[in-house]
Design a protein around this nucleic acid. Structure first.
Length: 599
RNA sequence: GGUCCGGUAGCUCAGCUGGAUAGAGCACCAGCCUUCUAAGCUGGGGGUCAUUGGUUCGAAUCCAAUCCGGAUCACCA
């Protein structure tokens, strides 16, 4: 148990012992970290009990403080400042905290529980390459997966590829018309970029045809419907659904190019999946569910044969589940896929990382499953995140205003190289080491940038202002880590020393404020990690790791390790920095960010 | 119009289960490298926490109303 939690329990026990007749609820006990400007480590807010106990805050504080010091082994003293009881934890407690945890590579993790959860993320369409918006989705999903694993869950990372539909046919038509049988090899392009290129071409052609029709006297709506290239795309989709061999072959070929391109991008970004679903294989699955819903009387049929669900009593409207011609719609597929996932893995929870524009869709999906009595609906959680926008508004792949994912990665790597060269940081590295380092720094900065903001907030990204490598960034944390590694190299202490490494350590001197600040931060890590998991929010780890690095930099500035005042101080500080480096690595690894030993 | 999300320093964001004088980073200004990596540290200026009212010992945080921005309410996916 964390010291923080122990303090809460101790306060609860103390109150019960002191005032056995008072009904003190757990929620009334508010324990916080003591603000740096006051002496003490943990603060108990006294106001909530004042009314109940009919006591002045200060009088209550004295009784509670005295009791805690006398009856627990945790606290050495206390101070009361205007209604706040500031408890000082004994130095010896901090000493054993360090000794017990400094060499624990799994510090902060939770024991395995019987809970299987799927996280679906990335989920790209195969008509265009990944862009900056996808990266937020991908990094979020990957990070949340890792965080859930670290907090004891069994995690299945899933990717649902949208490989069919009119958008794919658009790329195919344009390639047929304009491609001259170009392949990724002949065009010298990544496959996903090649296919994306023809998707843009399609829209160029389409717009031109619409303009032509309008010039010929058609109104806009009719023109958009009748543009020949659009009719061709729709015809191609019908052929695909009918299993036309030529269309099917082209579809397979072009999707194959896209997958090769995606694989390169995923690999560069360090992203993997345990399971890949393809919509072409799942899009018909929902129909059986709809049929059983009809039999159960949850759904109803209209005269034209279309199937609906009535969600009016939930404050929503009627929702179509199957077209009159019996073909499925978007939500039908999702119903089927939800059940498939559940049956495949016996899931307790199923997390969908999907942009917030689909909040309504996900709400409806859950409601329908619930009404149909499908157990797979219970564990569904929509991890909704805000879109990444440009200063000029949303990115539109049709209009080619997207910031491409591969380009962005390359740009960040270039930026990290420029920064390193500017700072004269390249000495003592081989070319190969430098290349690896720039990847680490560039990608780290990118991931951190996208993860440091609360997922539900939308982000505005200005590509003209490149991502900074100073301040609240991965680079800052990476740098703090390399400084620690440098100390450890000098002192011949391994990155992960054995439990017995500091067994001779004995605490006799008072712990200095910045040493204490480090220890207090380290003690918070399990609490922060648990909160990040509860809220599916990796940004909490970003903030935590940044603050720990900040505190370390101040500590580093004031307290020398190799020139510590004495051997005891040296050992204490070594334990602190060993553990700090370990916690930094642990938290950043969960976000997919690597911390180098030299930079 | 209904529903949901957001509005905190010039900019990007923390803080939101009510708690001490509202915090970071960037940008700006002034200092700090013969000492473990200056991609760093120290200090400074910069705020009507959108507005109004309410609840409370105490409100950026909770409630209500209003204003502004966004998303969504398809037989598209």
């Amino acid at each position: 148990m964390t010291l923080f939690a122990q303090t809460r329990l101790a306060v609860a026990a103390a109150l019960k012992a002191l005032y056995p007749d008072a009904e003190i609820k757990d929620t009334m006990i508010s324990v916080n970290l003591t603000k740096p400007e006051f002496t003490g480590d943990y603060t108990v807010v006294l106001f909530p009990f004042v009314k109940l106990l009919r006591m002045k805050p200060d009088a209550l504080g004295v009784q509670l403080g005295d009791y805690l010091v006398a009856n627990t082994d945790l606290f050495s003293s206390y101070a009361i400042v205007s209604g706040f009881l500031n408890m000082a934890v004994k130095d010896s407690v901090w000493g054993s905290f360090l000794l017990n945890n400094f060499s624990n590579a799994h510090y902060g993790e939770q024991v395995k529980k019987d809970n299987r959860v799927m996280v679906e993320y990335s989920s790209p369409n195969t008509n265009k390459p990944l862009h900056f918006g996808h990266m937020r989705n991908i990094f979020l999903g990957a990070a949340v997966s890792q965080i859930l694993k670290a907090t004891g869950n069994e995690v299945v990372k899933a990717n649902l590829i949208n490989d069919r539909g009119i958008h794919i046919c658009k790329s195919m038509i344009a390639w047929e018309k304009l491609g001259n049988n170009a392949t990724p090899e002949s065009a010298g392009m990544k496959g996903d970029h090649l296919v994306g290129h023809y998707y843009v071409k399609f829209n160029d052609l389409y717009k031109a045809q619409v303009a032509e029709l309008i010039a010929a006297g058609k109104d806009e709506k009719a023109a958009e419907k009748e543009a020949p290239i659009m009719l061709e795309a729709q015809e191609m989709l019908r052929k695909w659904e009918a299993g036309d061999p030529a269309v099917y072959l082209l579809w397979q070929t072009m999707n194959g190019w896209v997958y090769e391109g995606f694989d390169v991008s995923y690999k560069k970004m360090g992203i993997t999946f345990d399971k890949t679903y393809h919509e072409s294989e799942t899009y018909l699955l929902g129909k059986a569910l709809v049929q059983s819903g009809l039999e159960k009387g949850v759904l109803f049929k209209k005269e034209d044969g279309s199937v609906w669900i009535d969600l009016k009593d939930e404050g929503l409207d009627e929702k179509l589940l199957l077209r009159g011609d019996g073909t499925s719609v978007y939500i039908t597929q999702d119903l089927g896929t939800a059940k498939l996932k559940y049956d495949d893995f016996k899931l307790d929870q199923s997390i969908y990382v999907i942009a917030d524009e689909q909040n309504y869709h996900m709400q409806v999906l859950k409601l329908i499953l619930k009404k149909m009595g499908e157990p797979c609906g219970d564990g569904i959680h929509h991890l909704s995140y805000g879109m990444v926008e440009l200063p000029s508004g949303r990115m539109k792949s049709r209009e080619g205003t997207v910031v491409d994912a591969d380009d962005m990665v390359e740009e960040m790597i270039t930026l990290s190289r420029e920064q390193a060269e500017q700072n004269g940081k390249t000495a003592g590295f081989t070319e190969e080491e430098l290349g690896k380092l720039y990847d680490t720094v560039g990608l780290g900065a990118l991931k951190f940038y996208l993860l440091r903001v609360d997922p539900k907030k939308k982000m505005i990204f200005d590509p003209k202002e490149s991502i900074d490598l100073h301040g609240f960034t991965a680079t800052f944390i990476q740098y703090a880590h390399t400084r620690i590694c440098s100390i450890l190299r000098k002192e011949n202490v391994p990155l992960m020393p054995s439990v017995s490494h500091f067994q001779a350590f004995e605490l006799t001197e008072e712990i200095a404020p910045l040493e204490k600040a480090m220890i207090l931060h380290l003690e918070q890590y399990p609490t922060v990690l648990a909160a990040a998991a509860d809220e599916y929010n990796p940004s909490e780890l970003c903030i935590y790791a940044f603050q720990l690095s900040q505190t370390f930099n101040s500590f580093y500035d004031v307290h020398s390790i190799s020139k510590a005042e004495n051997e005891e101080k040296k050992q204490l500080r070594l334990m602190i920095v060993v553990m700090a480096a370990s916690v930094l690595r642990h938290s950043m690894n969960l976000l997919g960010i690597t911390l180098p030993e030299k930079m």
